[in-house]
Design a protein around this nucleic acid. Sequence first.
DNA 1: CTCGATGCAAAATGTTTGCACGCAG
DNA 2: CTGCGTGCAAACATTTTGCATCGAG
Lengths: 149, 149
Amino acid sequence: LRLALKERGLRMTPQRQLILDVVVTMHGHISVDQVHQQVTRQFPDVHITTVYRTLEVLEELGIVRHTHIHDGVAQYQRTDEALHQHMVCTVCQANTELEVEILKPLAEELRLRYGFKADLAHTAIVGVCRDCQSIRAAGALGHTAGQNG
Amino acid sequence: LRLALKERGLRMTPQRQLILDVVVTMHGHISVDQVHQQVTRQFPDVHITTVYRTLEVLEELGIVRHTHIHDGVAQYQRTDEALHQHMVCTVCQANTELEVEILKPLAEELRLRYGFKADLAHTAIVGVCRDCQSIRAAGALGHTAGQNG
DNA sequence: CTCGATGCAAAATGTTTGCACGCAG
DNA sequence: CTGCGTGCAAACATTTTGCATCGAG
């Protein structure tokens, strides 16, 4: 891993080591700010700009990849973790992992019909989780679009 | 439609009429800025703040919905257009429409296995389109991860 | 020593908010 | 006339950039 840096004339600094530590232990999506917070827990001096720049480097190296979920905040994930996908509930923000197997038929279909190589793990699937559906159902029984006020 | 506004004690202003005009004629995803530009083509005085606020109102009324695609910019789409989905190419930014039928098996699968009511039309599918795959293939034949530089 | 990396501040970008005035109803 | 809607500016949040200094190799 550090060799990858070396090959491109890049240096391994303590800051990068710390950020790398966070990256290899993280699961799923994580924001720049979250990475920064974890890093500053050990070295409060590490600037968030450095986190931005390091994650950018890691992205060029193919170690991480970033995306944007529901709000405008960039979320990073490891590329070797890209094979699992998340479902984010728009009501309770619950984040459930799902097996990527489920996505394969769709990916295959898109390839066949449009020649499009879909990166389905790139963005989380949004929707409403089981629990929040129950809660909602209790408040708004029926399935016609009536005006509630 | 204006009745929906009336019912909630909201007023129909020239600005809202203009923004509504843009909304009903738009297809797929459109940014706040794009709406604003189209509006100011007729009335240069309409402020972008008004566009933000009006789209927020329209979202509460269930007429539009917003999401975030690849960058952090909010994209709006009509809810009655939500039944088609887009594929955005990360290389050439091409935006291809696809039939929502393709997504239904996945949605059904997610419902069965996780009880999750997925809103698959909420976010565009990202990936690489047919053309850009060809171009890439020409530059990087083979499928091993070699270092190119 | 050399040159990439860092910290800081400031700029850039997209979005939200406070306030006084204007206009729809 | 009432109070919602508007334009404006300023606040806000996130991300990028310029620059002097530091330190990895």
